[in-house]
Each structure stands twice: as structure tokens, then as C-alpha cells.
């Protein structure tokens, strides 16, 4: 479980706080989507979970963040990293090795995964992300999208209890993005891995995340079950957060028919709603 209590954080040398009074709880096995405009504090939020704040990035830290009951201030990054895996927004700086194989090996070696387990873990991670054919390639020869998949595979191989991903599909086309989201859903449902996903692709996020948190100006503006948050579409739009168009459609139909329509998050639901309305 991850628990933020009144967390406020200001980066060293900055005046304005990056986060202020964050209260957020993610249960074990949760799938939380985080959305918000640029500069809202989403990445800082992710850094707070991994302990990079306050251990790597220093600054004024008030309140507390606990991962599985351990206060991140008193726990080393090493200890936290055994529980929490993180995929970074900037793929280029995340990748350490010149070869795909070595990149996947890196974390496995560091965490002391038994040698006999390593080949299996590596093959599984590559296969899940759909890049088994890239194992021997050099990173420099890969496209941005392929590199992004390598970064994801290198974290999945570690089998963390909590997976934090900061816009992991920026370089991917819609089909590959959907694949990654489906993989996260599978990890979440079958292995009970807690997923915390920062994403601008609102359509996919709403379809896959169980909970949503809307961040703006360093504050959590709204959090709760995805549908409940989406019910406040007007408020989100005012903050500059888009809604899936099916959600916009259900809101418009609620207004026009004068009767509350269900908040739709995918095509199936929208189709059902329309068919019911036209009889």
C-alpha cells in the first residue's frame, strides 16, 4: 500500500512548491491513473513514491509518504526499489547499457536474482512486451518506440510489487500503446501488481485505470473511481484535461435528454447507451 499524508515538497533552489498537501492512498492491487496538465507535479509525485524524493532530489519535504508501511524518508532508495519499479519519462536517460540484453540484465544482477532464474526472467519480460526479437540488438540501432519497450521490459523483469510509469507510451503508436496498457492490466489482475500510471493518453487511461487522480498546480484536484472522476468532465476541461469523446457524448446526451446517462469509458458502453436511447 502507498500512502501520502499531507505531503508538500519544494525542490532545492525553487520558490514554488512542486507538490502541496497531497493526500493519496493506493491500495495493494490498485491501478491508479494520474492525469494533469504539464508542470502540474505528476513526475514529482512519482519520484516521491520511489524515494528519489527526498533521497536523490533534495528540498523541503513536509508530511510523509509510506510504501508498504515504511516511511520513505527513513528507508533507503535500495530498499524501496526492491518493492517499487519505475519507468521514466525520458527513455534516453533511463537506459544505461549499450545492448538490449545488458539493459534487462542490469537490475536482475543488482537485485541478486539467482543465476539459474535469470535467462527465464529475461525471456519472459522481452516476450511480454513483444520485443523478443530485439534481445541481441544494440540500443543505438532501435527506434524511439522500441527503446521505450526495452525500458518497460527492464523493469517488468524485476517483478516489483508496485509499478510506477511516467508517460511510458509517448513514443508508441496507438496499437503499441494499447498493448502496453493491456500488459499492465494483465500484471495488475493476474499478479496483483499495483500500477501507478502517469499518462496524457486520456482515452486509454480511462479505459484501463480503476482509479484516477487529477493533478493540477501541485495539488490533487480530484481522485476516486475512474467513472466518478469523469462525471466531473466540465471541471477537468477547465483545468485543461481532456476527456474521452465517448464520455463527452454521455454528458451531452444527459443534458439533451434531461436524464442522467451512464458515464461511458469505451465504445461498447457508448454503443449500448445509444441503442437504449433510440430504442
Amino acid at each position: 500500500m502507498i500512502c501520502f499524508k499531507d505531503l508538500s515538497f519544494t525542490y532545492k533552489g525553487e520558490k514554488a512548491p512542486a507538490l502541496s498537501e497531497i493526500n493519496l492512498t493506493v491500495e495493494d492491487g490498485g491501478f491508479l491513473g494520474i492525469i494533469g496538465p504539464a508542470g502540474a507535479g505528476k513526475t514529482t509525485l512519482a519520484r516521491a513514491i520511489t524515494g528519489m524524493i527526498p533521497h536523490h532530489y533534495t528540498g523541503d519535504f513536509y508530511g510523509s509518504v509510506a510504501v508498504n508501511g515504511l516511511d520513505t524518508v527513513d528507508t533507503s532508495i535500495d530498499e524501496i526499489s526492491r518493492m517499487v519499479g519505475m519507468v521514466f519519462q525520458d527513455v534516453e536517460s533511463q537506459i544505461i547499457s549499450p545492448l538490449v540484453e545488458d539493459e534487462i540484465l542490469y537490475g536482475l544482477e543488482n537485485f541478486g536474482v539467482p543465476r539459474e532464474e535469470i535467462p527465464q526472467r529475461m525471456a519472459e519480460a522481452l516476450q511480454k512486451v513483444g520485443i523478443a526479437d530485439l534481445q541481441e540488438r544494440s540500443i543505438a540501432s532501435l527506434s524511439g518506440g522500441q527503446r521505450q519497450k526495452v525500458a518497460i521490459a527492464s523493469i517488468i523483469a524485476l517483478k516489483p510489487q508496485v509499478l510506477v510509469l511516467d508517460e511510458p507510451t509517448g513514443e508508441l503508436d496507438p496499437r503499441s500503446s494499447r498493448q502496453i496498457f493491456s500488459l499492465l492490466k494483465e500484471l495488475n489482475e493476474e499478479q496483483g501488481i499495483t500500477v501507478i500510471l502517469i499518462e496524457q493518453k486520456i482515452m486509454l487511461l480511462c479505459e484501463f485505470a480503476k482509479q484516477l487522480a487529477v493533478v493540477s498546480g501541485g495539488k490533487i484536484i480530484r481522485q476516486g473511481n475512474t467513472r466518478d472522476v469523469l462525471a466531473h468532465a466540465d471541471e477537468l476541461q477547465a483545468l485543461g484535461v481532456n476527456c474521452p469523446r465517448v464520455t463527452t457524448l454521455s454528458r451531452m446526451l444527459s443534458e439533451k435528454t434531461g436524464a442522467a446517462q451512464p458515464v461511458c469509458i469505451n465504445l461498447e458502453e457508448a454503443e449500448k447507451m445509444v441503442r437504449r436511447l433510440i430504442g
Binding site: R175, M203, P244, R245, A270
Partner: peptide
Amino acid sequence: ILPPQMIGLGLRL
């Protein structure tokens, strides 16, 4: 390619 949502919905309906 996945078409935009409203076009996808229109095709379904």
C-alpha cells in the same frame, strides 16, 4: 490504426 472514437462508434451503430 484505431479510428477516432466517434467514427468507431458510428460504424458500430
